[in-house]
Amino acid sequence: MKLGVIAANGKAGRVIVEEAVSRNIDVTAIVRGENKTAAKSMIQKDLFDLTYEDVKEFDVLIDAFGAWTPETLPQHTTSLLYLSDILSGKPNRLLVVGGAGGLYTDSSHTTRLMDGKDFPEAFYPLASSMSDSLDALRKRSDVNWTYVSPAADFRADGERTGDYLLRGEEFSVNEKGESFISYKDYAIAMIDEALSGKHVQERISVLSK
């Protein structure tokens, strides 16, 4: 399998590349600047300048792009739509590093985690923009996408336990009533999905045991 990781220099991107390299997967970092990852191959290009010619060799593209400021938050949606247009009707798969705020808290899938009264107000704009991007992605039946949501507590410096729980659209907790996962364990789940391709055109979620 050939794998490309967009925004590979970011926190999530770098850990995903490291996990792929540790499994001897042929991985290429797609970055705007110098390659700061463990990948030996790189494409130096902005996401919005990519063409299908740039990515056609990759069986799977992992999109680890993130935007954090008020003026850039809409790029969560515009970037996914751009990549969807590139991959429209193509066999390549697109895996997206998603957010947890849009996970449903009811079986009817009408209420989201971010709609709860205890959801941190400071995180709402980011959660809302990422949820909007998933809504846009759901409309693309012409793309082999998979959206991977982390647990509510996504720990950049957490340890690699080597294990995780795979869940679906609904917010869930482990046996201790906790919802967290480290970037390193999330990367394991992401690479597992890249290899298996079991959840095309689905949102899945992962958390630590």
Rank of each mutant, 00 (worst) to 15 (best):
L94M: 03
M114T: 02
G89S: 03
T111V: 01
D163G: 06
L137Y: 04
A122D: 10
A136T: 10
R140A: 06
K90A: 03
F119I: 07
E159S: 14
G98S: 10
R155D: 12
Y164D: 07
T161W: 05
K117A: 11
R93M: 01
S84Y: 02
G98A: 10
D153E: 13
S84H: 02
G101N: 11
E159T: 15
G98Y: 03
D85Q: 08
D157W: 07
R112P: 00
K90G: 02
E159D: 15
G116M: 08
K90T: 03
T146C: 15
V143H: 08
V97Q: 05
Y104L: 07
D153Y: 09
D132H: 14
T105K: 11
A156E: 15
E159C: 05
L113W: 01
S128G: 01
S107F: 04
M130Y: 14
S108K: 13
L87F: 06
L137I: 14
D85W: 02
T146E: 12
S149R: 10
S149D: 09
E121G: 06
S133W: 15
D142Y: 11
S107G: 04
T105S: 07
S108F: 06
E121F: 01
P125R: 13
V148I: 15
T105F: 04
Y104I: 09
Y124K: 15
L87R: 08
P150M: 09
L113S: 01
V97N: 06
A136V: 12
T146F: 04
P125E: 11
